Computed example of a mutant assay.
Amino acid sequence: MRTLIFVVLLGTGLHGAAAVAHSLKYFYTGSSGVPNFPEFVAVGMVDDVQIDHYDSNTRRAEPKQDWMSRVTEDRADYWERNTNRYRSHQQSFKVSIEDLKPRFNQTGGVHIFQLMYGCEWDDETREVNGFHEYGYDGEDFISFDLKTETWIAPKQQAVISKHEWEENKGLIANRRNYLAQICPEWLKKYVDYGRRSLLRTELPSVSLLQKTPSSPVSCHASGFYPDRATLIWRKDGEELHEDVELGEILPNHDGTFQTSADLKPSASEDWGKYECVFQLSGVKDDIVTRLDKAKIRSNEKNSLVIPIVIVAVVVLALVVVAALGFVVYRKKNAKQPPSPVTNPEVMEQLNPKA
């Protein structure tokens, strides 16, 4: 079971160019007691790219990608319908938090109620996987198993909901239909709308970095798209696992990604046997960077420059302070609907047919 996370503001994440697996996910987050944050936030994601946004402050569903303007070709009232759907869940999530507090013997404090649902579709195998999962205060609460058409309750407090929802055969049929049919259909449409953006590839620039001569050598790749990529170190053509620390794939401000892999070479005379290899999904050729001392960028080269800059800044600051002091001296002198937890009928609203 997946662990739900507190979705605040989602940046642009991206999934693969020539990747055959696509996903459509919706994240709803209701909060209580969180200052300076909307009590309800909803976002839609296609291949981990945010496509829309709604929160209790704006109270409107809004597109987050230019190509999402095409949705009105299939449904003219798309944005109005989604706005109304999000507003409905805003109210039900607020009631749900109040319903869950006594189950967990809680009163006040900060509490988070979440829902993640959607589907994954493989355009090569045609396999579809659906998911519908609730979380409370950062932990799994209850989820729907599409294969067995049952609800799984990892928390004792969720057992009552499990029994109620499994007795509602209409609810089960609704979830099965959405996850297995409607969701994949819309996912295919979204991928088609954003094909030019979602299915593109961009290769990174690769650099070798080292803080000091005794520090590990870092192979840093930045500017690649999509995020389905790997960065490894090899020696004599064999992939290394020891003395290698792999970094996470992180987003850049422009929608591309970056990652790094640190290597502790065994001996300086063997450096010519090492190479950093970047592989991007859908791209045939790898980017291979051989370990070469001459190509390593080190902080030591700039070690003498930093003190000089600091001194210059301090001197400039003193001059400015003195000048301002002189000027001052001269001037001185002259701002409800039923809960989805207790009422399973609300779950039927979780069907974004728009």
Results as ranks from 00 to 15, higher is better:
241 H>S: 06
221 A>I: 03
237 G>I: 00
239 E>N: 04
216 P>T: 04
229 A>Y: 14
247 G>N: 07
241 H>V: 03
244 V>Y: 05
247 G>I: 06
234 R>Y: 04
243 D>S: 11
226 P>M: 09
232 I>V: 14
244 V>R: 05
242 E>M: 05
234 R>M: 09
238 E>F: 07
227 D>W: 00
228 R>N: 10
244 V>G: 10
239 E>A: 11
224 F>C: 01
231 L>K: 09
228 R>F: 02
226 P>D: 15
217 V>Q: 09
236 D>G: 02
228 R>Y: 03
248 E>Y: 05
244 V>P: 11
245 E>Q: 11
237 G>W: 02
240 L>A: 01
228 R>L: 02
221 A>F: 08
230 T>Y: 10
238 E>N: 11
237 G>M: 01
232 I>F: 08
217 V>K: 10
244 V>M: 08
228 R>G: 03
218 S>M: 15
244 V>L: 06
229 A>W: 12
232 I>K: 15
237 G>S: 03
248 E>W: 05
247 G>K: 06
223 G>R: 13
221 A>H: 09
246 L>W: 04
220 H>W: 15
239 E>Q: 15
244 V>S: 08
241 H>M: 03
227 D>M: 03
228 R>E: 12
217 V>N: 09
224 F>R: 09
230 T>M: 06
224 F>S: 07
232 I>H: 09
236 D>W: 01
222 S>K: 15
233 W>Y: 07
227 D>P: 00
229 A>G: 09
227 D>Q: 11
244 V>H: 06
217 V>T: 08
226 P>V: 02
221 A>G: 09
242 E>F: 04
233 W>N: 05
217 V>R: 12
218 S>F: 15
231 L>C: 12
243 D>H: 12
216 P>K: 10
216 P>Q: 12
232 I>S: 13
